[in-house]
Design a protein around this nucleic acid. Structure first.
Ligand code: FES
Ligand code: FES
Lengths: 130, 130
DNA sequence: ACAAATGATACTAATATGGTATCATTATTA
DNA sequence: TAATAATGATACCATATTAGTATCATTTGT
């Protein structure tokens, strides 16, 4: 059971790198530094761009850079982008599966645990990692 | 990103049911009550038996029952059985992947979050769910 | 002996994750 | 203005995990 998948991981590393290096950074440079497959890294950066965490510049001399301060990039947000929102499993979400539905204790408990986890994750920003 | 997979879920429901009903419970009865595919449920119960959380009795009139008190069946243990130990991803574990290795801040942070999650999960027992 | 249960194990299907390949678009610069 | 070096978009493939099935063997009560 892993808390963090590979693309989240790579994204975090890329963001850390960029927060330490001002200006545009190309995918090529990143993979050289971080040892990650290039097309995969590219996909990841493109997603971060779409999510408006990075900004991109095309053409020669182009590349990516942080769009927002490392202090405002939360790890939990990166996890959400690549792993979807932290959630329960089918049973707890899709009510049709479960017979208990409303009065389920477990569901409430899990909810509160989630809140706890999120609370802790929310304290971690890229700035706090570098 | 789901915290709990289906087999964990089914296992929890089965354990809850059994803690409410003394005596042997057959797979057939469980799937009837919980609406879960029979062979899958069987596999799950067999695993719980191997893990010595349930005990089983073969033959006519047989079935499963709790081997230990619901107060001592921890949710985190059920998760471990079906989802493996709560852990980090490849990067953080397999050092060969990551260039940072020792001096990684993220790794430590994640560790501490894990401890927090585990701490909360450890408070949840089957007894606390029924 | 038979029926009703689990034990063991191998197999298949579906989904999620990890990763590639390719062509289109944009901007720099010689 | 054409070559080049970058990203955008998208479709595709590979692998791993999860979910579920199928089958035969074993045990036990009647
Ligand atoms: S909602 Fe399904 S067990 Fe609680
Ligand atoms: S161990 Fe890999 S980024 Fe920390």
């Amino acid at each position: 059971m892993k808390l963090i998948t590979r693309n989240t991981d790579y994204a975090l590393r890329a963001l850390c790198y960029m927060s330490k290096h001002e200006g545009l950074v190309t995918v090529g440079r990143l993979v050289q530094k971080l040892g990650v497959p290039q097309p995969f890294m590219r996909k990841i950066l493109q997603k971060l761009n779409k999510e408006r965490i990075l900004e991109s510049h095309k053409g020669q001399g182009g590349g990516f850079k942080l769009k927002i301060s490392p202090k405002k990039i939360y790890m939990v947000e990166i996890m959400r982008v690549f792993q979807g929102p932290l959630g329960l499993n089918g049973c707890f979400l899709k009510k049709d599966i479960c017979p208990n539905k409303g009065k389920c204790v477990l569901r409430k408990k899990i909810r509160s645990i989630e809140e706890g986890v999120l609370g802790q994750l929310r304290e971690i920003t890229i700035a706090s990692l570098i």
